[in-house]
Design a protein around this nucleic acid. Structure first.
Lengths: 337, 337
DNA sequence: ATCGATTAAGAAAGCGCTTACAATAAGAGG
DNA sequence: CCTCTTATTGTAAGCGCTTTCTTAATCGAT
């Protein structure tokens, strides 16, 4: 491997000069820089990231922390899409992406320790247990962090806009003529309460009243649970004309239950999902759902993180909402009655 | 940050001794080691990976190279599952995982240059254009590599066993009584020809003859294409009783076409997918498909890569086949006639 | 001619860690 | 009592890079 010293020797200058040349220092004569850079290129010089990181105490790499708790397909898809844009955005800014986890080396290392060990300049935190003590320690450390879909008050957060998501979906359903809109929502979490807020707000703005029996809890990504929830809704004295599910996977469970009960979709019942996973566009009819902009989430996370890393002025944690959009598929029709 | 020097001072020994103690060198007295290690722990010492990498010329990190050419959901799911196990396996062996890509820093860096820049000890290559000159350069470099689903003759390859996959599926279909088994296969690639080999072999072993008109090409992950292929099969003088699709997504396209043509699944037509994506277990009926063991692929890749990194003896490239298994769903029934 | 200002390049230290080698001390053997 | 092992710790160099501080050279101004 060619190193600075080799270039220096070849050019008959000192290593200091080479280093300056490679960084375009204006201390040097233009021609010197040009000459040295050309030589470096000719020799096939590649800088050594470890040496640089050691010297500068900056690694130009950011960590990504996520734990695949559920192992569910959706989490995966949502996350991997985000990860992809994190990677792309980070790289375009000269940062590499490394995973931060626990089990590095055999002794247990906490997330924070791992991050310090690898000298990452910052960490994007997504899809973890945000109440985990280790995560909290990391967020409160000297290492810049950005969280996705969770708000701490000492770290910038990038949020998918669940409130507006539900709001838009209800509005869309209403625009198709629906007034009896059920919402099978996920278990009690931050995300769920935000979506409920959107659901309520839309009803208020539309002058529709919310029927409590149309609000049913079912775990996220649980097609069985959503099937049961659906049956419960069908046994209501006044059956809703449209059901919003907590996610696209749950929607599939719901559709199966509806079909078993002899309902045709969308003629007899309109259904709406959430997330906009790939499969939603492949099924026929195409699923009407709310497409979360996972790419944009990742992008924003990196933008904010890098801003925080590279800016020396005081830092004020922000909360950024990234909105998605309604994917008009074929699972919603004008209601019968 | 606490460093070796701090521990040395605190313990009244030299940095050399501390370093040795932390590595459990047997040059040192047991008690010295114990004392120093305890002090290090008390002080909250975290070693500095950059410094270590610089000194040892070994970073204890491996690169992952993949390019999401298609952007298709399946690729994502398959890959992210693999990536997950790469990560887990690597970490359990003390290695971190970093992405290797092109656009690091603004000047273009090739994969190889990027890998050298970050001092990765090895690279797992998956889901890329294996004919890309840059990839070939990387594989032929001094950096150990392991490829997934492609064989170069200078690098170990981990292969999902496509031949056996198709073989097993045909056998399974036959065991259900099918004799007219169509195969909508993907475009001409390495993978496709391996699967075709399995298809032929199974027919031979079962004493069934292959009908050329039952073999139709349709791009991978293209539900539209597979729908058309399906229609073509339905217009055959002798319609097959079972159709194997190139993947689960294509299967969905095929099923849609079949349903439009008035076929009931599995009563009127048996269908089989490939891959075993998450959705295949959520749809009703559950899809009969061949589940690729993506976790095992990732695991094996790391095992082989680390073996190659840490072993100094001569290296002989291997090819390892990882087999999946038939997921018996509800899309295959005993044929009518 | 002398001096300070300016420009261009080099010397050297040091980031944190590991390790070959040196040094010391203690015990064994003659 | 001296030498030779053996056991244990220390010294110091150096991985490749950046950067502060010097130094040397050039130039215009007094």
């Amino acid at each position: 491997m060619i190193k600075v010293k080799d270039i220096a020797k070849k050019c008959g200058v000192s290593t200091a000069t080479v280093s300056k040349a490679l960084h375009n220092s204006k201390e040097l004569k233009e021609e010197t820089i040009a000459y040295i850079c050309k030589t470096a290129k000719d020799l096939g010089y590649i800088p050594n990231a470890s040496a640089r990181a050691l010297k500068l105490k900056k690694s130009y790499s950011i960590g990504v922390l996520f734990v695949d708790k559920t192992g569910s397909g959706l989490q995966h898809e949502y996350f991997s899409s985000m990860l992809d844009s994190v990677k792309t955005e980070a790289e375009s800014r000269g940062y590499d992406v490394t995973f931060i986890s626990q089990n590095i080396t055999n002794e247990d290392m906490s997330y924070l320790e791992h991050a310090r060990y690898r000298n990452v300049d910052g960490v994007v935190i997504a899809s973890v247990d945000f109440h985990d003590e280790q995560v909290i320690k990391l967020v409160n450390s000297e290492i810049p962090t950005v969280t996705i879909d969770y708000i701490y008050n000492c770290s910038t957060a990038i949020m998918s806009d669940n409130t507006n998501g539900l709001y838009d979906l209800v509005k869309y359903a209403a625009s198709m003529g629906h007034k009896k809109i059920a919402f099978v929502h996920g278990e009690t979490t931050d995300v769920t309460s935000k979506r409920l807020a959107g659901y309520y707000k839309a009803h208020q703005d539309l002058n529709l009243k919310v029927k409590q029996s149309y609000l049913i809890t079912s775990d996220y990504h649980d097609p069985k649970g959503s099937g049961q929830a659906t049956k419960k809704l069908l046994s209501e004295p006044v059956v809703p004309t449209c059901i919003i599910y907590p996610d696209d996977i749950s929607l599939i469970g719901g559709m199966t239950a509806l079909q078993q009960a002899g309902y045709k979709i969308p003629e007899d019942m309109s259904v709406i999902g959430y997330d906009g996973v790939n499969i939603s566009r492949i099924l026929r009819p195409i699923v009407t759902t709310y497409v979360q902009d996972s790419k944009e989430l990742g992008r924003q996370a990196v933008i904010e993180l890098v801003a925080r890393i590279e800016q020396f002025s005081t830092f004020i944690p922000k909360v950024i909402y990234v909105s998605g959009k309604v994917q008009e598929g074929g699972t919603v029709a004008v209601p019968r009655s």
